[in-house]
Simulated assay, not measured.
Amino acid sequence: MSQPSRSSSIPAVALDEQALIQECEVKFTRRGGPGGQHRNKVSSAVVLKHRPTGVTAEASERRSQAENRSVAIARLRVELAIHIREEVEEFVAPLVRQYGGSQFRVAIGNEVYPVILADVLNRTLASEGDVAAAAEFWSTTASQVVRFLRQEPQTLSVVNQARQQAGRHRLK
């Protein structure tokens, strides 16, 4: 977990699609997957490497390069949320009313999911893996935050590393 070396004041996870792509090295390759007789004839797989952070994401399961690009961008945002600590509070403050509360639910496919994930991780990791800080901010319970973190298996691993270093028990 690190801080990126970027000039933009907007966190990478909150950048619009075009600005995020400009910060990335984009590579088109051939991969196995669906496509029938067109398989391995067209470079439809997309690999994105975020230059300031080195975080990568790829998508190759769709036949269309444009669809794979969209999937790769969504995956890159989630990877950035998990591995890069940037302040996102000003971007999530307006979202608390809509997504916070007792039923703290945000679908992985939702465009705001990576920003909310980044905030939950920031708050949880700042308090040595204690999810109570995130729960309080989002007006929900610790168990709802844990359920939210379970949506993306890597996140629970990151939180459990912080908890282990702080001498806390692992979350399941």
Rank of each mutant, 00 (worst) to 15 (best):
N160L: 03
Q154E: 13
R75L: 05
I21M: 02
S60W: 10
G109M: 07
R75E: 04
E61C: 06
G36H: 04
R6I: 14
A132G: 09
I116E: 08
V106T: 07
V47M: 05
V145C: 10
E90G: 09
A162Q: 00
S127L: 13
I108Y: 02
Q164V: 00
E79T: 09
L20R: 08
I108A: 14
I116S: 10
R51Q: 13
E67D: 14
Q65H: 10
T140E: 10
A59F: 12
S127M: 09
A19L: 08
P94W: 14
S43Y: 01
P34R: 08
R51K: 09
R105I: 02
V26M: 13
Y113W: 07
V46D: 00
R62T: 03
Y99F: 15
R77F: 05
P34Y: 02
A133R: 15
G54T: 01
Q154C: 03
H50S: 05
V26H: 06
P94Y: 14
M1Q: 06
S60I: 03
A132D: 03
R105L: 00
L149P: 01
P4G: 14
H38P: 08
L117C: 13
V159A: 07
E58D: 11
L121R: 14
L15S: 11
E17Y: 00
V115H: 13
A132M: 08
E128Y: 02
A66Y: 12
E25M: 03
S143Y: 11
T53I: 06
G109H: 13
A81F: 07
Q165T: 08
V71H: 07
I73D: 12
L149I: 03
N122H: 08
S60Y: 13
A142Y: 05
N160R: 04
H50F: 06
S64A: 04
R31Q: 04
R31D: 08
E79V: 03
V131M: 13
I108W: 02
A66C: 06
E87P: 00
V159E: 02
A66D: 11
T141G: 12
R123V: 08
S102W: 11
I10L: 13
S102K: 15
S7E: 12
Q144V: 04
L125Q: 01
I116G: 11
R39T: 01
A14I: 12
